[in-house]
């Protein structure tokens, strides 16, 4: 198992936003987390990636215990994530947004900057190259010099994924990578995720678009009110009574 959580949970002022969830993702697969709005999916991501400190449980990535590590250290350990709402810097170019993505793998400090050391030059070059590679991988390299604000939603989603890639991760946590893009573009993003897996990355995604999840995921976990109510292959989950009830109970808010 590449990623493993045990009893992972958090309480916000009495509300159990995530309640003792056991979850595993195998290397080189796509795992999906679904559930109605407010189910705790994003919070679960936040727990794994160190944005929230869990009240219970542990997180392990590739045998390394990440529980209670701050966010930047989980990234160093190989956990990269995107956010539900894109928060790239709109006024900068795509490339400028991306270069800093490789910062976590570099060592140059203030003194390198002042004395323009060879290490700084090497790492600058490396970061730039890694950024271009990631953009190329995500199919947006030709937009490198455009400002983020001037490119489409879908392209921004791809840039976000490229940014995560630039950190050289073992696993990518993608929070609703296809929110707010049309069906055709969703298909394109699904292809990108497949490509990630083909290149030995592991992906864990939260997504409301069922068609995308069904076609992509090797396994699905369903959260409801912070609890894991089902887990398994897409077909099993789709026919699970508890899941159907949870979604019906939530009033079918989800996209197709």
């Amino acid at each position: 198992m590449l990623l493993k959580t045990e009893n992972l949970g958090i309480t916000f002022g009495g509300l159990k936003a995530v309640n003792e969830v056991d979850f595993e993702v195998e290397r080189g697969t796509v795992a999906a987390i679904i559930g109605p709005n407010g189910a705790g999916k994003s919070t679960f991501f936040n727990l794994m990636s160190g944005f929230h400190k869990p009240t219970t449980g542990t997180v392990t990535l590739d045998g390394e215990n990440l529980t209670n590590l701050p966010a930047h250290k989980t990234v160093r350990s190989g956990m990269a994530r995107t956010f539900q709402t894109t928060n790239l810097f709109m006024e900068d170019t795509v490339l400028d947004n991306l270069i800093v993505g490789h910062r976590v793998r570099t060592k140059s400090n203030f003194f390198d900057a002042i004395f323009r050391t060879p290490r700084l030059r090497r790492e600058e070059k490396e970061s730039r190259e890694r950024a271009m590679e990631a953009l190329e991988f995500a199919g947006v390299d030709r937009l490198a010099n455009r400002t983020v604000g001037s490119i489409s939603q879908e392209a921004q989603k791809r840039v976000s994924i490229a940014l995560a890639l630039a950190t050289d991760p073992k696993i990518l946590l993608l929070d609703e990578p296809a929110a707010g893009v049309n069906n055709e573009e969703t298909e394109g993003l699904a292809t990108l995720i497949r490509k990630l897996v083909e290149h030995d990355y592991t992906v864990c995604l939260v997504e409301h678009k069922m068609s995308m999840v069904m076609g992509l995921a090797d396994k699905i976990m369903v959260l409801h009110h912070g609890e894991k109510i089902a887990e398994g292959a897409p077909k099993e989950v789709a026919s699970n009574e508890a899941v159907i009830e949870a979604y019906l109970g939530a009033g079918e808010e989800e996209d197709a």
């Binding site: 701050p70 990234v75 990269a80 995560a164 630039a166």
Partner: peptide, 10 residues
């Protein structure tokens, strides 16, 4: 948030 998510020790 994004800075932390790219591994910067904010």
């Amino acid at each position: 948030e994004l800075a932390a998510a790219t591994g910067i020790n904010v």
